[in-house]
Amino acid sequence: MIKDDVFRKTEGHLYRYYNTLKKIKALEEECKELEKQKEKIKQDLKETKVSIDTELNMGIDYSRSKIQTSNDGTSYAEKALVKEIEKLEKEWFYVRKKYLKKRIKIRELERQIYTLKCNLLMLSEENKRFLELKYGDKKSIDEIAYILNIARATVYRKREELIEDIARWVNLIG
């Protein structure tokens, strides 16, 4: 039997581990969405650049009484298109920056949980499932007993045994 403070610390490690896994999953979903946004922006840029080329080769319309030009020889329409392209490029860089920051955060979180993850991988599937229910899904002892079809006393005993083993792995007890 281990001390109460060691037991609580070990449970804290497990709760943080499973919360971190959830954070990583959420960040990965955000990265997928940012990746889609980047591709859409790239597509918009390609379409816009193609349309500029075709519009520039259309020739001059002499039916209009006034043609807007500036001192540098570019029309209002050309300037407006260039401005929109610059906005798209800024948006692409902004999305890319957010994507890279999230990837960095994912790697930081993975480094934080690496040791415990390696230790938990050595457990049997039954024990992994137990820990996931208790600390990942935050199920009560009664719910775990019902889901795993075991007695409450067995759930308490299994939790004690697993916590003691994990405490040894993370060097909380000798």
Rank of each mutant, 00 (worst) to 15 (best):
M1H: 06
I2F: 02
D5Q: 14
F7T: 01
F7V: 02
R8T: 09
R8S: 07
K9W: 06
K9R: 14
T10Y: 09
G12F: 08
G12N: 11
L14K: 10
L14G: 02
L14E: 12
Y15R: 06
R16C: 06
Y17P: 00
Y18C: 03
L21Q: 13
K22R: 11
K22F: 03
K22V: 01
K23Q: 09
I24Q: 02
E30N: 08
E30A: 04
E30K: 11
K32T: 09
K32Q: 12
E33P: 01
L34C: 05
L34F: 11
K36M: 10
K36R: 15
K36T: 11
Q37F: 07
E39Y: 13
E39K: 15
K40F: 12
I41R: 07
Q43K: 15
D44W: 02
L45A: 03
K46L: 13
K46P: 01
E47W: 02
E47Q: 10
T48L: 15
T48P: 01
T48V: 06
K49Y: 06
D53M: 14
E55N: 13
L56N: 07
M58C: 00
G59F: 11
I60R: 11
I60K: 12
S63E: 11
S63M: 04
S65H: 09
K66A: 11
T69W: 06
S70T: 14
D72N: 13
T74M: 12
T74Q: 07
S75V: 07
Y76G: 01
Y76H: 02
A77W: 02
A80R: 10
L81S: 12
L81A: 12
K83W: 01
E84A: 08
I85T: 13
K87F: 10
L88N: 03
E89K: 10
E91K: 15
W92P: 01
F93S: 08
Y94V: 01
V95H: 04
R96E: 10
R96I: 01
R96H: 11
K98Y: 00
K98E: 13
K102D: 08
K102S: 04
I104V: 13
K105Q: 10
I106E: 05
I106D: 04
E108A: 00
E108F: 00
L109N: 03
L109K: 07
E110W: 04
E110N: 06
R111V: 03
R111L: 11
Q112C: 11
I113Q: 05
T115M: 11
L116D: 04
L116E: 05
K117Q: 10
N119H: 14
L120K: 08
L120W: 10
L121S: 13
L121Q: 15
M122E: 15
M122N: 13
L123G: 06
L123H: 05
S124I: 07
E125D: 15
E125T: 15
